[in-house]
């Protein structure tokens, strides 16, 4: 992938600031939109509404953490919605039958196992992760319906809710989870050797392999993390809504991938950040929230969300070959 352009001061500056400027652009967009909504709707800029926005973004952020790792390693996972549903439904049943701790463990294990399965099948059999995860999406979603016998599972367990739902003071616990997990995920990705190997695997699998990195193992781990994130998201869903439904989070894969892409991660792998994903998710939430306050329904939200995705990718740096993404 050698280029022939010469390096010069300008390029170096853009490169260093490049990543920073992408994120700055996102922050700018969020601020700009918030300004517009504040001006047009009296309800936007209030503590209650801002807390709502972050709370409504929390689950997408948690899922986005895993997805960021996966996409940076040049794979993809479209099974997270189904895995989340099966995790939640399983956890719900166990919470009601045994107890909150056992339920939480079951939920996490379901997510982790599906993630590992995604990884192992992708690497051992050499099937593209897109196809594998379409398969596991169906399996997980179908299993969720079967396990729950097509009924919502109501969970009213005080202990569970105190950990995964409710508030601590004025702050919803959901937000604390999202924040805490994001910090851990971000630091791990940026500062640990494993994180560096994730970037390298996605950037040039050949370079990584020739340098002795076990790229197969890296990918299995990122997919496992995405599964684990889905499990956690399932528990948080129960914490928030007090019920587990097999049809929950239908189509959330696209929203999460959109947030990750808007946040600067390249679908080809090798580039991206946790901060970007969070900003991408927030941008979408701000748009949804503002439009709802102004009385525009889900059709407008879908339309504008689509435009934002295209705009975000178009405004990003082109890589040397002149292609976007």
């Amino acid at each position: 992938m050698a280029t022939t352009s010469t390096s010069d001061l300008g390029k170096l500056i853009t490169d260093r600031l490049g990543r920073f400027s992408e994120l700055a652009l996102l922050v700018g967009a969020i601020v700009l939109l918030s300004g517009i909504f504040t001006a047009t709707s009296s309800a936007f800029f209030s503590i209650g509404n801002l807390v709502n926005i972050i709370r409504q973004t929390a689950i997408v952020i948690v899922l986005g953490l895993g997805m960021t790792y996966v996409i940076i390693s040049a794979e993809i996972d479209v099974s997270i919605g189904g895995v989340m549903a099966l995790s939640a439904v399983s956890a719900g049943l166990v919470i009601n039958a045994v107890g909150p701790f056992a339920g939480a463990v079951v939920g996490l294990l379901v997510g982790l196992c599906f993630g590992l399965a995604n990884g192992l099948v992708t690497i051992r059999f050499g099937i593209p992760s897109f196809i594998v995860t379409i398969g596991t999406l169906g399996i997980a979603r179908g299993a969720a319906f079967i396990v729950s016998q097509q009924r919502p599972i109501i969970v009213r367990n005080a202990a569970f809710e105190s950990v995964f739902g409710g508030t601590i003071g004025p702050v919803p616990v959901l937000i604390l989870w999202a924040l805490g997990l994001a910090i851990v995920a971000g630091i791990a990705l940026w500062r640990t050797r494993f994180g560096r190997h994730v970037y390298a695997t996605g950037d040039s699998e050949q370079a990584a392999r020739y340098s002795g990195i076990n790229t197969g193992r890296v990918k299995i781990m990122t997919l496992a993390l995405a599964g684990l994130a889905a499990g956690i998201a399932g528990l948080l869903f129960i914490g928030r809504l007090g019920a587990a439904r097999a049809d929950m989070a239908s189509g959330i894969e696209l929203a999460v991938i959109a947030a990750v892409i808007i946040g600067g991660t390249s679908l080809f792998g090798g580039r991206g950040s946790i901060v970007g994903t969070i900003l991408g998710a927030l941008l979408i939430s701000v748009i949804d929230n503002g439009l709802t306050l102004l009385g525009f329904g889900s059709s407008w939200q879908q339309l504008i969300r689509g435009l934002v995705i295209i705009a975000a990718v178009a405004l990003r740096d082109r890589d040397e070959e002149g292609s976007f993404l």
Binding site: I59, R245, T292, L294
Partner: peptide
């Protein structure tokens, strides 16, 4: 305002 949350409990919430 008129809203259609696509049969999703989360969106409706």
């Amino acid at each position: 305002g008129i809203h259609y949350p696509d049969f999703s409990a989360q969106k409706q919430s």
